[in-house]
Amino acid sequence: MLHFIKKLYYGDIPDASSGAAPLNDKQQPATDWPLWEVFIRSKQGLDHKHVGSLHATDAQMAIENARDVYTRRQEGVSIWVVESKYITASNPAEAGELYEPAADKVYRHPTFYDLPDEVKHM
């Protein structure tokens, strides 16, 4: 794998035996809790904004974890969480059909119209 990326950069640690002990019998494999997307309102009057994701067993734990992970420095006054599986995203491959129709409609923008300077603010 990655045979052609051999140059090592900072934080990129070479694949050599780390000398780690093998997993012992007590070692339980991790099992993931559901993934949640986190949205935070930074102050009253602003939208909730996507900040990242985390794992939690249920919605209440997701909010508590989001508080710890994403608002340690008063970044938020309100948190939304939604299980990631419920988010439907548009397909980047369909970006053309979805967004290009708006590209040739310059008349939708106020700057399209030449008005005399006397109009001032409009």
Binding site: I13, S18, A20, Q27, P29, A30, D32
Partner: peptide, 15 residues
Amino acid sequence: SREQMINDLHSGKAK
């Protein structure tokens, strides 16, 4: 998956 990453760290596979 998170699971895979944690397991790779614990097994010494990940650095």
